[in-house]
Design a protein around this nucleic acid. Structure first.
Lengths: 359, 359
DNA sequence: CTGAAAGCGCTTACAG
DNA sequence: CTGAAAGCGCTTACAG
């Protein structure tokens, strides 16, 4: 019974050439045990026959699947596109596939999702943990993307320093009374950013912190945040710790007739898709997801692949690899919402997507 | 050499019990060829030993990997979270894993991404095609999520009817001069929505269509859309074909001091993450991604799995399955941006996510 | 430089 | 109801 596959396998190539399957394997994998002429002949025949190697069979034999898992706290998170794209790209450059798993904010489901990935034989996984979760040993290499203040094997943006940069920016602009806006005080990332903001603003600046979650617990979800009153009370800058909160602040202020940026400044974090598109465009701080993903994947690969020779120098990005704790700088992107002229933009705006849906 | 796996395999269970591996396999798969007592004993031993089946080996043997591919035009698309979450969920309920592939807006990369998925032995794939792409036969079952006006094996929201609903809503509100805002005239989805909007508004309403892509080709990316002038010219409603464009319109109008909704209405499509969060919250039309994903996955599974018995009635959602062309109704969500009081909200707002990052 | 053989862990006819 | 055997497609020592 040959229910499997449609195309030819190694034996077919071997038979067509009158050689053994082992030789075909060696020729194709280029481990140098086969004569150059034979290698060429094998390659040609493989191409002619439209040979596609079975990664499944290889996985069974070698014990490595060539697949990595990506575990996310909640795929609906607006930052997810950036993360997933960067990880998918880094992984596929390194020859790995990416299996996604959504824990939907649920801690039990996170465990379950990890288990499913293990069953499927992933060689390692990237975990963006649910708030407050510590990842136990799961029996395969793991890279956690979180914040440096989370202990463990982590790659992350330097959220604190990113906050500090934004704080300095606002301080230089002359703001002396700043409202910091966070979603949840339970978030390490958000606390890091707020800590950095305060430090960057410096001791001469008066700060207050508004946690949206707390306000909503009293006023109800989606309630106004009372920002107009804050503006009246002398706050001139509203520094949110995410672009989602920044957008909420911006529209609430605009709706109240308060001009941004001429009356007050608004800033966010993460350079989410809408940030360059709204009027005024949002000043924000962006994580270097490409680098973070590269570091995470490189760390995983080092843990997975036997230390052969150093061969592929490309895999190790400029000799930098995640060693226990890696923190990647964030990048301040100044746009109109903090009053800078458009020409001061430090970053090309997000390109709109080319898909049918969603744009 | 036993480089593979850490845990026990079937042979280990078989040996521990003094039976054959075949019997263990039959017992565990519950195909009813084994006596109830033995089944129980096998199960117990498997649990005791912490047996985890090798999906890889099963895949090699059966020719089915239990993995589905998800091909996206651009993971950065703001709609991607909804799609990915729904697909991941539907697939994992059906026992399948999901491998992601990003074509990054590039048509060559789409082909390449599909090829990589095939190599990895996916049993089928869900494709959200790049604009204008027609998916060729890829050698495995495919479900395309697009629009009913795209020919082929498609599951989609009924974009036209969704537009019509929005059109009727705006018409009932008394609008007689409406600006339709789209991103790109090359998009079938957007054209369908615009067609529906016009039909829903009816012949008594004056319409004009603004394509952002065209404006930007002249004025530059991120340029103002001149909406204040439109308002001055008598347009009282701005119906965007995506919430991203709607947000752009909303903030541009607000910035110009035009009150939404008391002076003009703004509406969008897709219920993207920020829609319930901005002030005023956006009236929009939402795709039923859960149903679309269920239909797509169900269609794939029917194509993949041999027609055994009808057994799992759950897999077929209420007897409805994608048969060639399936169109799922869209849902109008009325919020403040078109002037309705908050209490008229037809839909619970999106929950903020519980992750560390992005909120 | 090339080949024969074993084996990764499972499932599936086929016998008993 | 249970088992022996073959085989999915590959890779890897080991011989020649």
């Amino acid at each position: 019974m040959a229910i499997n596959r449609s195309g030819p396998n190694m034996s077919a190539i071997a038979a067509a050439l009158g050689v053994s399957a082992a030789t075909v394997s060696n020729a194709l994998s280029g481990k140098g045990r086969v004569s150059p002429e034979l290698i060429e002949k094998v390659r040609a025949k493989a191409a002619e026959l439209g040979y596609v190697p079975s990664l499944t069979a290889r996985a069974l034999r070698t014990g490595r699947s060539g697949v990595l898992g990506l575990v996310l706290p909640d795929i609906a998170n607006p930052l997810f596109p950036q993360i997933a794209q960067a990880i998918e790209n880094a992984a596929s450059n390194a020859g790995y596939g990416v299996l996604i798993a959504d824990s939907r904010g649920d801690i039990a489901r996170q465990t379950e999702a990890i288990g499913r990935l293990i069953e499927r034989g992933v060689d390692g996984m990237v975990i963006v943990p649910r708030r407050g979760t510590r990842i136990a040993d799961v029996g395969c290499p793991v890279a956690v993307i979180d914040t440096p203040s989370t202990p463990g094997n982590t790659v992350s943006a330097d959220h604190w320093e990113g906050g500090a940069e934004m704080g300095r920016h606002l301080s230089l602009l002359g703001h002396r009374k700043v409202l910091l806006i966070g979603a949840s005080p339970a978030s390490n990332v958000q606390n890091d950013r707020i800590g950095g903001l305060k430090a960057g603003l410096g001791p001469g600046v008066e700060c207050d912190t508004l946690w949206i979650e707390k306000v909503e617990a009293i006023e109800g979800e989606g309630c106004p945040l009372g920002l107009a009153a804050r503006a009246a009370a002398g706050f001139t800058a509203f520094a949110a710790v995410s672009d989602l909160s920044a957008l909420r602040a911006l529209t609430e202020l605009q709706r109240a007739g308060i001009g941004v940026p001429e009356a007050v400044s608004v800033s966010g974090f993460d350079d989410l898709i809408w940030s360059p598109v709204v009027t005024p465009a949002l000043t924000t701080v962006r994580m270097d997801m490409t680098t973070i993903a590269d570091l995470a994947i490189a760390a995983l690969i080092r843990a997975i692949e036997p230390e052969d020779e150093p061969e592929d120098a490309e895999k190790t990005i400029a000799g930098k690899v995640a060693s226990g704790q890696d923190r990647v700088p964030m990048q301040l992107i100044v746009r109109q919402s903090t009053g800078a002229p458009p020409s001061a933009s430090l970053h090309a705006p997000n390109k709109p997507t080319a898909g049918e849906l969603g744009t």
